Simulated scan of single mutants.
Amino acid sequence: MNPMNARFAFIAAPLLVLAYGVIRILDGLDGSRGPGLAWTTGHLAFMAALVLFAGIFWQLRAMAGRDTLSTVSAVAGTAGIAALLAQFGIDVVVGFLAADHAGMSVLFDRVQSVPGVAIAVYDGGPFLFYLAQLALVIQLAVMRRVRPWTPVLVLIDLALPFADKDLIPLGALFLLVSFAPLARREVPAAATVRPAATVS
C-alpha cells in the first residue's frame, strides 16, 4: 500500500464502520433489521471497511519492521477479515433472498447448520480480525511508533460493540481518533522502515 492509499484507508475505514453503525441503528427503528435497502447498504459499507483494513494490517506490519510477530498478526487479521467478509456476504445474500425478517431467520439457520460454517464464519474466525488489530497497535506502542493511548482507543472500539451493538458508531469515533495520527505522520515514514530482527 503506497502512502497516499494508506492515509486514505486509515481515515476511510473508521468512517465506513461509523456509517454501518448508524445505518444499523436506523434499520432497527421499526423493531427489526432487514431485509431492505438499509440492511444491504450498511453491510456493504462494513465490507468496504474490511477491504481497507486488509491494507491497514499490512501497513502496520511494515511500521513494525515486518518481523515475525507483526507478520503473524497481519496474517491472522487477514484471515479474520476473510471470515467477516464471508459472514457479511451471507447477510447480504440472505437479505436479497428473504421476503421478511422471519424468512431471514430461516435462511440463517440453514446456513449456520452447515458443518464448519458456524465456527469459521461466526463464532471463531472473525475474532482473529479483532485480536490482530489490537496486537499490532500494542506492538507498535511498545516500539514507540504510535502514541501510548492508541491501543487503549482501539480496545475501546473493539469492546463497545460487545457491550451493545448500538455503540458501534461511538467505537468507530474512537478508532478514527486512534488512526488519524497514523494517517498524518506515521504512514509516510513506514516506507523507509528497515526490516527488524525476527521475534520468536
Rank of each mutant, 00 (worst) to 15 (best):
N5I: 14
R7L: 04
R7F: 08
R7T: 02
A9E: 03
A9N: 00
A12Y: 06
P14F: 07
P14I: 03
P14N: 05
L16F: 06
L16N: 06
V17C: 03
V17D: 03
L18H: 00
A19V: 04
Y20Q: 08
V22S: 09
V22K: 04
I23W: 04
I23C: 12
I23H: 04
I23F: 12
I25A: 11
L26F: 07
G28I: 08
G28A: 08
L29G: 15
S32H: 13
G34L: 01
G34R: 05
P35A: 02
G36K: 01
W39I: 06
T40L: 13
G42R: 11
G42E: 04
H43M: 01
H43F: 11
L44C: 06
F46T: 12
F46W: 12
M47Y: 00
A48K: 00
V51Y: 13
V51I: 05
V51R: 05
L52E: 05
F53T: 00
G55M: 06
I56H: 00
W58M: 05
W58N: 01
W58V: 10
Q59R: 13
L60K: 02
A62L: 14
R66C: 10
D67N: 12
T68W: 15
S70C: 10
T71H: 03
A74F: 02
A76E: 09
T78P: 07
A79T: 11
L85C: 11
L85W: 15
L85Y: 08
A86H: 09
D91Q: 14
D91L: 12
V92N: 03
V93W: 06
V94T: 04
F96M: 10
H101W: 14
A102R: 15
M104F: 14
V106T: 02
L107M: 06
F108C: 07
D109I: 07
R110C: 09
R110N: 15
Q112F: 14
V114F: 05
P115F: 08
V117E: 01
I119F: 15
V121Q: 04
V121N: 03
Y122R: 12
G124T: 09
G124C: 02
F127M: 08
Y130E: 15
L134I: 07
A135R: 08
A135V: 11
L136R: 00
L136A: 02
Q139F: 05
Q139P: 09
L140S: 06
V142P: 06
M143I: 10
M143Y: 14
R144C: 13
R145T: 03
R145D: 14
V146A: 03
V146Q: 04
V146W: 07
T150N: 05
P151M: 06
P151K: 05
V152N: 04
V154Y: 08
L155V: 00
L158E: 03
L158I: 08
A159E: 05
A159L: 09
L160A: 08
D164E: 13
D164Y: 08
D164L: 02
K165W: 13
K165Y: 15
P169S: 13
P169L: 04
G171N: 00
G171E: 02
L173K: 01
L173N: 01
F174V: 13
L176K: 01
L176R: 02
L176W: 06
V177A: 00
V177N: 05
S178T: 00
A180W: 11
P181C: 01
L182V: 02
A183K: 07
R185E: 11
R185M: 13
E186G: 07
V187L: 12
V187S: 10
P188N: 07
A189H: 10
A191M: 12
T192Y: 10
V193L: 13
T198Y: 10
V199C: 09
